[in-house]
Design a protein around this nucleic acid. Structure first.
Length: 398
RNA sequence: GGAGGAGUGCCCGAGUGGUUAAAGGGGACGGGCUGUAAACCCGUUAGCUUAGCUUACGUUGGUUCAAAUCCAACCUCCUCCA
């Protein structure tokens, strides 16, 4: 077992953390004091799915839990109903409480592989900020609102931009930082982990905590995972996402389809592979191997080592060696004879006929390894036929 | 309360009466290439009983041989003034 000091240094220096306020050395001192600190990450459950950039925050939190600190995963079910003004479109996509609650359940499910909620002695704890905001009286709210000034809020770049662009700022989003910040007070924390884009909000919380409780909160700002070549953030719309809550095969594939530049970013943020081991991978010259390694690691973390190995093997067999995957779904066909269009439709009923016609004429469909481009071609169905549709659609015909 | 502006396909965004199922970009999908589902090149991207038909540009009506494009009402959103 390494000394606490070594473990702490390792966590702080891996390259995940961008900035520590008020200072790294102060935090380090505190971490080594032997005191059990209270950590938290807050996240507004605005959508159903999480990706790796979210996951890395929770993984970091888990490391602090393993050091013996108390950690909270805070879901802003109430603040999600406000909409963080950081997101330009948030004002439009306000959630109902029911939607937020649903997302919370889904998120907990997705992160329980990387954060331990069941530890006997020191489990991570899920908290919802509606717990305290629902109890808050108007008197208390006025007290909260009186803790800051309009000028102070206006320091926020986002608000300044909106004013310059003649974009609206609604009152409820204007005070959003205050509400988010109050979470720190309610939870009485020592340290908050947040994305660099949330620094302003986290600092608002730091101020509040100082005023209400005279306590100095540390803010640990972590990098957002972005493509070093293009600066693109990981997100669904950029197509650069690896999403949690799918399945091992999908996750493996999503990693393989990441741009090569993302390999190192993912290894650093989402695995704990030693930095010198990452360097030895020689990503530049062997991107494919490095990516396979990364994909296996990730699937192992989320679904277990067995799944990681299996998916890697399956990927190599299917896409490198081009052999028909043995775990392809089986489709029962009663008829002895069927045209190609209908056959594909049986396997992928969610596709429209037009789409299937298109695929066939583009040469995407093959039977037993032979490409067929006539969708009207009548086929004699036999046991064990192998149908391939596109890159990833594999079916055994029975 | 007054004046003005906007609502287009999965997303962003052109388009102001007629080859417009709607430019362009993104995403996605397919093909080629690659011992990566990366990159790159090319193509596709409403549905159907597919040489035809049906549905589609906020909603509902109207004008016209013909409307995303003109008119009316309504809904939603934004800006400025007060």
């Amino acid at each position: 077992m390494k000394s606490t000091e070594q473990r702490v240094s390792k966590i702080l220096s891996r390259g995940i953390i961008k900035n520590i306020l008020p200072s790294e050395s102060e935090l380090k001192k505190k971490l080594l004091s032997g005191e059990q600190l209270r950590f938290y990450i807050g996240a507004d459950p605005t959508g159903p799915s999480l990706h790796l950039s979210h996951a890395k925050n929770f993984m970091l939190l888990e490391e602090f839990r393993q050091l013996g600190h108390k950690v909270f995963v805070l879901f802003g079910d109430l603040t999600a109903c406000i909409g963080d003004p950081t997101d330009r479109n948030a004002a439009r996509t306000r959630l109902t409480r029911e939607e937020a609650k649903k997302n919370v359940d889904s998120w907990v499910n997705q992160i329980k592989a990387i954060i331990n909620f069941d530890d006997h002695d020191n489990p991570a704890e899920v908290v919802l900020n509606s717990t305290w905001f629902d109890q808050m009286s108007v008197t208390e709210m006025i007290e909260l609102l009186s803790q800051t000034t309009v000028q102070r809020m206006l320091e926020r770049d986002m608000f300044e931009k909106r004013i310059n662009n003649n974009q609206p700022i609604f009152l409820h989003e204007f005070v959003y930082p205050l509400f988010q910040g109050y979470d720190s007070v309610a939870l009485d924390v020592d340290v908050e982990l947040c994305g660099t884009d949330q620094t302003f909000n986290a600092l608002a919380g730091r101020d509040l905590l100082k005023r209400f409780k005279g306590k100095e909160k540390f803010v640990v700002a972590v990098n957002l995972m972005e493509n070093p070549a293009t600066g693109e953030l990981m997100s669904k719309s950029n197509g650069t996402g690896v999403f949690l809550g799918t399945n091992p095969k999908t996750m493996f594939g999503e990693v393989m389809s990441l741009p090569d530049e993302m390999i190192e970013v993912v290894l650093i943020n989402n695995t704990r592979v030693a930095l010198d081991e990452i360097a030895q991978l020689d990503i530049k010259n062997k991107p494919r191997d490095a990516k396979l390694f990364t994909a296996e690691k990730l699937v192992s973390i989320f679904y277990g080592e067995r799944a990681g190995k299996d998916e890697k093997e399956s990927f190599i067999q299917t896409f490198s060696k081009k052999s028909f995957p043995s775990d392809a779904p089986k489709v029962e066909i009663e008829e002895n004879q069927l045209d190609l269009l209908s056959l594909v439709k049986r396997c992928q009923p969610e596709k429209s006929n037009n789409e299937i016609r298109r695929l066939i004429s583009q040469g995407a469909v093959s039977l037993n390894g032979n490409k067929i481009t006539d969708f009207e071609e009548s086929l004699v169905i036999s046991q064990g036929m192998e149908l391939k549709v596109g890159k990833r659609g594999f079916f055994h015909i029975n």
